[in-house]
Amino acid sequence: MKIRIKFSKRGNIRFIGHLDMMRYFQKCMRRADIPIRYSDGFSPHQIMSFAAPLGLGTESDAEYMDIEITEDIDRAEAVKRLNDVMCDGVKVLDWKVMPDNSKTAMSQMESADYLVICGDVELAPLQKDEIPVTKENKKTGESKTVDIKPMIYEIHKVPEGVFMHIAQGSSANLKPSAVMELLGTGYDRIIRKEIYDSNGLTL
């Protein structure tokens, strides 16, 4: 049975990287006695995947993780058991049974909302038809110019700083920090607020 878990990651836990978060959740599954499915083979591992790695230092109100379980467990019970074993800053928000043929969160993800906490900022540099950005491939050393304008679906000022809805996924991917760099503004914190699929629905 496929399960999608939604959780938040706030506070100091933002300094824990993606791979360590996976290890953290593997232990949580054991502590909470979740009947998670394991792979076959001599050293079985838990079937678990995340929608998208969160950069070190970034917080989130909407992280998604897919697991499989071997026996059904009541939604509220599962959320409670997991939250009983969470550390400060991580909270399980939802536990959803997915259809057996559903795609992974990672492959469904198309865009995400971000809130960037910062001082006053001028959005004018983005009011152009094209925003070419040159990126160097670290492995090959080749550089490539991409227009990131179509990847910014929405951006506006809010009292805390800037809100943006940008492309996130395998087809097009933009980092919120890259947008801030373009604006030439420093910031205090980036918080991922939500992740959406190609239909604009939350995962």
Binding site: N12, I13, F15, C87, D88
Partner: peptide
């Protein structure tokens, strides 16, 4: 914390 390797070494929690 974002500059040093493995900031988790220093945050406890």
């Amino acid at each position: 914390l974002l500059k040093v390797d493995k900031p988790a070494r220093y945050i406890g929690n």
